[in-house]
Simulated assay, not measured.
Amino acid sequence: MTSTPTPAAPPTLADLTVGQEIARTRHEITRDTLVRYAGASGDFNPIHYNDAVATEAGLPGVIAHGMLTMGTAITGLLDALGDPSAVRGYSVRFTHPIPVPPTGSVTLEVVAVVGAIDEQAGTARVDLTAQVDGTKVLGRARATVALAAAGTDA
């Protein structure tokens, strides 16, 4: 994974502006990644490891797990926040499967941008754009984060 540098201190709500990019990451996904995720999650659906089964199901071949994609997409934001407990909600729509080649890798590119700030609630909505080869793989990917106001503790 490559990402933007982690800030010295977690951001406060006052540090953010709508439209501000707060994280940019690139994640390599391989068949090995899928095997490891299947073992950790218990999701052994054959569309994630068997090309014949995946194509019979109408897919372009073996695809990455949806939850693997969703979890991977938010890691840059978590690093930028410095505190994963700041995330109050996270949701996505799965818009396109991620085919994973038998050898080599595919790259998931994610950009996290501040979409809205609610000063009264002490939260910000962060919109994530997740793409593989220019194709959006997640739609309406949003995280709500609770951040300290300037000069206070979280």
Results as ranks from 00 to 15, higher is better:
143 A>K: 01
34 L>M: 09
87 V>H: 06
52 A>R: 12
5 P>M: 02
7 P>L: 07
117 I>W: 07
144 T>N: 01
130 A>R: 05
124 A>R: 12
78 L>Y: 06
58 G>A: 10
103 T>P: 03
79 D>Y: 07
24 R>E: 12
91 S>K: 01
82 G>K: 13
29 I>E: 10
15 D>S: 11
9 A>H: 15
36 R>H: 14
50 N>W: 02
84 P>W: 03
126 V>S: 00
18 V>A: 09
45 N>Y: 02
90 Y>Q: 00
110 V>S: 01
78 L>P: 04
30 T>K: 00
122 G>L: 07
94 F>L: 13
128 L>T: 10
36 R>N: 14
9 A>M: 06
136 K>R: 14
37 Y>L: 07
12 T>W: 07
65 H>D: 10
36 R>D: 15
108 L>P: 05
136 K>D: 15
148 A>R: 13
101 P>G: 00
132 V>R: 04
34 L>A: 09
142 R>D: 00
38 A>E: 03
91 S>R: 01
68 L>V: 08
30 T>H: 01
80 A>N: 11
146 A>I: 02
116 A>G: 09
96 H>T: 13
92 V>M: 13
5 P>G: 06
37 Y>F: 15
40 A>K: 06
108 L>K: 05
81 L>Q: 13
107 T>S: 08
59 L>G: 03
85 S>K: 14
76 G>K: 04
11 P>Q: 09
21 E>C: 06
142 R>H: 05
111 V>G: 05
7 P>G: 11
28 E>D: 12
136 K>C: 11
139 G>C: 10
71 G>H: 11
26 R>T: 13
29 I>L: 15
132 V>S: 05
15 D>Y: 09
18 V>F: 07
41 S>I: 02
1 M>W: 09
86 A>Q: 10
92 V>D: 13
152 T>R: 08
132 V>D: 05
39 G>E: 06
14 A>F: 05
149 A>F: 03
149 A>G: 11
87 V>C: 09
131 Q>K: 14
127 D>P: 03
97 P>T: 13
60 P>A: 03
7 P>D: 11
123 T>R: 14
107 T>M: 04
85 S>T: 15
48 H>R: 13
37 Y>M: 05
127 D>H: 10
77 L>D: 03
16 L>H: 03
14 A>P: 06
40 A>G: 13
93 R>S: 14
40 A>H: 08
125 R>D: 15
89 G>Y: 02
148 A>V: 08
4 T>P: 05
65 H>C: 12
55 T>P: 04
149 A>P: 06
28 E>K: 14
116 A>N: 12
54 A>H: 02
138 L>N: 01
14 A>N: 09
125 R>C: 06
20 Q>F: 06
137 V>E: 01
56 E>W: 06
51 D>S: 12
16 L>D: 06
101 P>S: 00
137 V>L: 00
142 R>N: 02
145 V>W: 05
69 T>S: 14
127 D>T: 11
88 R>W: 00
95 T>V: 07
140 R>K: 13
148 A>C: 10
97 P>Y: 09
3 S>N: 12
135 T>F: 02
66 G>C: 07
131 Q>R: 15
77 L>V: 07
